[in-house]
Structures are given as structure tokens and as C-alpha cells.
Amino acid sequence: MNIFRLLGDISHLLAIIILLRKIWMSRSCAGISGKSQLLFGLVYTTRYLDLITSYISLYNSVMKVVFLAASYATIYLMYVKFKATYDHNHDTFRIEFLVVPAVALALLINHDFQVVEILWTFSIYLESVAILPQLFMVSKTGEAESITSHYLFALGVYRGLYLLNWIYRFWAEDHYDLIAIVAGVVQTVLYCDFFYLYITKVLRGKKLQLPA
């Protein structure tokens, strides 16, 4: 463990808590993409299967349970409890265009052709594009509530910090995982446009408005 990965995990946890709290407190999921949340649920489910088989550390196991629980809770709130507030009209990204290529790529490019490893690889590829429905929805509605933009910022920063973690691990442990790194770069780059808007607008107290 290193400071970059710890801060990254904390930022990731913060993002998930911010979102869950926003939906729960406002009793509404307006402006939130349920499709992205479904994809995140799929990412954690396919990646954390080893929760039962391999024990790495208490921290690792606890965080996996928290991420899975928070993800399922968010999906439950969006699609069951507060589904009347779910914005179908703006959450229209075709997620099959993300899932199918991720499956294909995981079968083609992986470290080991075993079920758990293929699922892990699929989760890495899918996570790199899972935010697209949410970013697409923000661009369609043309704006995002500030709490939603804080959520997106924390979520984008988490994988950015993981990039620093991978640089550190390459230098300090001579260990690197090219699949995770390439997907992590793609994932972080997708947020760049949002990062720019967040820094220049939201941090100045303005609403996040995308140029129409």
C-alpha cells in the first residue's frame, strides 16, 4: 500500500458515499445516470469475486464489501425506492456498446485465460468507460447539480491517483500491470473535459453548465 493508492481509495469511497447520501437525503435521483450505476455494480461484482476465495488484507476485504454494498444500495434506491424520480429521458446511453466490447476485449487481451482472471479483466475495461452514460447525461441536460459534480470529481480523481500509485509501484516494486494502467489512463482522460469545467466553474461557485 502507498499514499497514492490510499488517497485514491478514500476518494473513491468519498464519491460513492456522496452519491448515496445525495440520493437518500434528497429522496431523488434526478440528474444521476442509473445506467452508469448499473455498470459500476457490474464492475464491482465481476472484480470482487475473489472476496470469498483469496484474502489479501482486512482493509482490502472491508473496502470490497463496502463498495459492493454501497453500489447495490444506490441501484436499489434508483430503480426501486425512488424510481419515480429516475430521469429515463436523459439517461439514454446504449450501455450494450460498452459491455459487449469490454467482454470481447477481455477475452482477447488478458493475463491468463481463466474465468476469474477474464472477469477481472472485463471489470477493468468496463470501469474505464462506465462513467460515459453519466457524462453523456450531464451533456444532454446541459448542467449538473454541484453535489453531482463533486461526486464526479472525486470519482475521476480516484483513478488519477491510481496512476500515481502505478508509477510508484513500478519504481519501488518493479511491478506493473499494463492492462490496469492503459484502462486507467483511458478512464482518467475521459474526465479531463469535466475536470476543466469543475475547476473553472464549480470551484468558483458557479453551476456546472456545459456550453449548449
Binding site: D50, N60, W120, A180
Partner: peptide, 10 residues
């Protein structure tokens, strides 16, 4: 590169 035997990251 020492390929990750197990994935120790979240």
C-alpha cells in the same frame, strides 16, 4: 514485469 499473481488492488 512481475505479472500480478493476485490482484491486490481494489
Amino acid at each position: 514485469s512481475t505479472l500480478p499473481k493476485i490482484h491486490d488492488e481494489l
